[in-house]
């Protein structure tokens, strides 16, 4: 009995450690005083002012667009990569897996710097022939797609390995075209992997700061880089309000996803 409650206390302490800053931020979002260290009474003002703050709203828009597009494109590339790898030999497969894993295993600062060097060099070369190419939305998007590809592959590949090739061949024998056979037979089996890959990539993109920091260029901001520039002058309390809203929305969404009854899954 004592052993069991000790276990519970241990889990509780770790959860407290992980959630303490989050609780702090939620409390701060209701703090009427602008400084972090003082409690100035309860207020909803920051939630109202948040929606009038154009800088934060545009950073939020950028963050969501980059996350959505990069997760989508990275998932498609991941799917193509997994299919392509099936046609390679053992050596080719481990070479490609090795290369695609680099952005995940390498330090983010190195990935960020290497992409920045590439983009600035491209900019230099294009500048000589009179084409303007600057760091901004496109370079951030390209970088996010690149570091999201390994997460997509990681989610899809295990599903791909479980596939039974004879089902696909049976579909072909029964007269389906390659595309139809893939769409009707292979894709449904891969779908859980594809959707978890997409979610993973989306999360990684939203939370990324370091790679965006190096590849964004002046004038383009996501929420992370906006917060980083605000760190020195002091974070606007609207930011706490926004992150509280995001946290609550994600919490509810994830709760709903995890609570869906098992039956619809079986029907699929």
């Amino acid at each position: 009995m004592i052993y069991k409650s000790l276990k519970r206390i241990y889990i509780g302490l770790i959860l407290l450690f992980l959630y303490a800053p989050i609780i702090t931020l939620i409390v701060l979002s209701f703090n009427a005083s602008k400084t972090r260290s003082k409690w100035g009474g309860f207020t909803f003002d920051w939630y109202i002012e948040l929606f009038q703050n154009e800088e934060i709203m545009s950073a939020l828009g950028n963050t969501l667009i980059v996350a959505l597009l990069s997760a989508l494109i990275a998932t498609i590339f991941g799917l193509i990569g997994c299919v392509a790898m099936q046609q390679l030999g053992r050596k080719g497969r481990s070479l490609i897996t090795g290369i695609t894993n680099i952005p995940m295993l390498n330090a983010e600062i190195v990935t960020g710097i290497s992409l920045m060097l590439l983009f600035l060099s491209i900019g230099n070369i294009l500048g000589k022939i009179g084409v303007r190419f600057q760091l901004g939305f496109m370079t951030v998007l390209i970088s996010h797609i690149t570091f999201n590809i390994p997460y997509a592959i990681l989610s899809i590949l295990p599903r791909m390995k479980q596939l039974n090739p004879s089902v696909y061949e049976a579909a072909l024998d029964l007269g389906a075209t390659k595309f139809t056979a893939f769409r009707k037979v292979v894709l449904p089996d891969l779908l859980p992997g594809i959707s978890s890959g997409f979610l993973m990539a989306f999360t990684m993109s939203i939370d990324d700061f370091i790679i965006t920091h190096f590849t964004k260029g002046p004038g383009f901001d996501t929420l992370s880089t906006k917060i980083y520039t605000e760190l020195r002058k002091g974070i606007k309390p609207e930011m706490y309000a926004l992150s509280t809203i995001i946290f609550v929305v994600v919490f509810i969404l994830l709760l709903l996803v995890n609570h869906t009854p098992k039956e619809p899954n079986k029907k699929r």
Binding site: P21, L28, D207, I235, Y240, S243, L254
Partner: peptide, 27 residues
């Protein structure tokens, strides 16, 4: 779910929150 969820709060803000918690006059 339990251990991924905190990652949805921006990591710069979470780290900053620790500053509020452990400051000299902190929580």
């Amino acid at each position: 779910f339990m251990f991924i969820l905190p990652m949805w709060m921006n990591f710069l803000l979470r780290t900053l929150a620790w500053q509020t918690l452990i400051e000299k006059t902190g929580v």
